[in-house]
Simulated assay, not measured.
Amino acid sequence: MTSLLSLDKRTYLVTGVLNNESIAWHVAAALQRENCEVVLTSYGRVARITRRVAELLPSRTEVLELDVMSDQSVDALAATVERRWGHLDGVVHSIAAAPPEALGPGFGSTPAGEVLDGFRASSYSFQQLSTALAPLLARAPGGGAVVGLTVDSARALPGYGWMGVYKSALEAIARYLAMHLGPSGIRVNLVAAGPIETVSARGVGTFAALAEQYERWAPLGWDRADPARVVGAVLFLLSDLSRHTTGQVVHADGGMHAVFGGVDPAAGSTASRPDATAG
């Protein structure tokens, strides 16, 4: 029986795989289970780690060099993909970086150079990578897809500092990319994930407190140790099911973005609240 996702035998580029806890790793694994060819990216010394965790995926995959702080590296990646595969069906952008002092209380004192470096890595790279790969995505049968990972940027999140700003910028960039790339048949969307325990998340001092809020109050419950809760939304946006969806932010957070934390959603109702590990 053909999968409704219609991902069979397609080729996807997935960035940001640091270990097998990362959302990007779980997306890559899910794509391979749908019989897709997956290509990963990494850079410098980190590439050795990416290659090791790539061996834990269901199928073998290649790891290409990509340093989003280098225009030449982005162009070289596009040229390599053009030469080897000729087209791409989709790209997953899971890249974000900021110096520790740019998070939390350092918001008001982070030097401009470090702020701008974080913006380039976390926000501008989404535009740069999407634009560089657009000619390859435009050749995808049925249209190419770009999916980025973000957080709930509609609110200021304690502890996120400049990273929260970068995610807000990412959302605006996604809207403009959707407008500019739509005529080429390329759709651009974001998934706003609830708090998932990853290496990056551990760099946010308030992560545990935020995760507790989600696990306590999200209408569908939440589990910070379950990346699969985010993967489904990414696969949907990469698939033909989202062929007419672009410029959107899909929240995969148990519904937390829609409610006010601190009030029992079952209060005043005879309905019971789902268990925190349900969903």
Rank of each mutant, 00 (worst) to 15 (best):
A209Q: 15
V263K: 14
S109N: 13
R120T: 05
A154E: 15
A79G: 06
P227W: 06
R45N: 08
E212K: 14
S239D: 07
T206Q: 09
D223C: 11
S73R: 00
G254A: 08
V165H: 06
T15G: 00
R273H: 06
E62W: 03
L18V: 10
S70N: 01
A28R: 03
I95M: 00
L56H: 10
V68S: 01
S269R: 09
E197W: 07
R229N: 08
S130R: 05
L181V: 09
S184W: 02
P141A: 13
V147Y: 09
A47V: 01
R202E: 08
Q127Y: 13
A78I: 02
G104C: 07
P135C: 05
V115S: 04
Q127M: 11
V231M: 03
R216Q: 15
W222G: 10
A30M: 04
K9V: 06
T11P: 06
V263F: 13
S272T: 12
M256Y: 15
P100S: 12
R48G: 07
L4Q: 14
V38W: 00
A24E: 09
V27W: 02
A278Q: 11
V151G: 13
F260I: 14
R155A: 11
D8E: 15
V81N: 01
A276E: 11
D67R: 01
A138M: 10
S200E: 14
M1F: 08
A29D: 12
H244N: 15
T277I: 06
L157F: 05
R273K: 15
A76S: 10
W222P: 12
A178I: 04
A266T: 05
A228D: 12
L77G: 01
I196S: 04
A28I: 06
A192K: 03
Q213K: 14
V188P: 06
R187M: 04
D275A: 12
V39Y: 00
E34C: 03
A233C: 01
A211Q: 13
G142Y: 07
G194C: 04
E65I: 00
Y12E: 03
A193C: 03
V63S: 02
Q128G: 02
D67P: 05
Q213P: 14
V199F: 10
